[in-house]
Amino acid sequence: MGLTIVWLCLIVLIPLSTIFLRAAGLGWDGFVAVGLSARALSAYKLSFGTALLAASVNAVFGLLIAWILARYEFPGKKFVDAAVDLPFALPTAVAGIALVSLYAENGWIGSLLAPLGIRVAYTPLGVVVALIFIGLPFIVRSVQPVLADLGADVEEAAATLGATRWQTFSRVILPAIAPALLTGFALAFARGVGEYGSVIFIAGNMPYKSEIAPLLIVTQLEQFDYPGATAIACVMLVASFSMLLLVNLLQAWRAKRSAK
């Protein structure tokens, strides 16, 4: 217990406190001027919006993939199982480059979509694609162990009691994996909000349109404006942290309720 907290402080909390202290140097008015400017606000909107969308897409397909990996046998399963982790292993910059070369108008997928009038690269849609790529392993890897651990006996029991397959899924399986799914969702979302390396290549980076919040931080740094950079970082951090806290509180509440 004590060790947990000490280590947490050393590696996470003390380093993170530096950004709050730096931002505090700005004073409240300065903080608002930088951290909540119109341009910053539209960047937050883009970052949080695309992250939310990508995490939702991932929640659905990630669950599906975790399901087929945990429950079914099919040729190449081992390989697919391995491939799921690759977004972590691939440097984000490489992922961004690979994605943009696929989705640009002269890329394999981009050239198919262009005649339909769909532009992916250099639009907010491109950001979503990159974030789907980045976030997928979070959902799959959160759900998969729980799904594998969930014995078939419970489902069989439900089935013997006359439940249809869908009922078994929605009433027995889903509640059991809901915490893991929610966790995966929250993590994919939080990661998406802060992602920089891969998004920068595919976003287009036009102010007010496709400029993500982490890019604004880099812009501030480029002007040697550390307080400004940390101000934006603070806003993002507080927002993501509240989200994570909310999800975790929700789970604690749920666990308590189901225990009664």
Binding site: V34, A38, R39, S42, P207, Y208, K209, Q220, Q223, G228
Partner: peptide, 14 residues
């Protein structure tokens, strides 16, 4: 710099 000539090119959402 922030609010300089370059920033004013992109003034507000289109």
């Amino acid at each position: 710099a922030d609010g300089g000539v370059f920033d004013r090119i992109y003034s507000g959402p289109k």
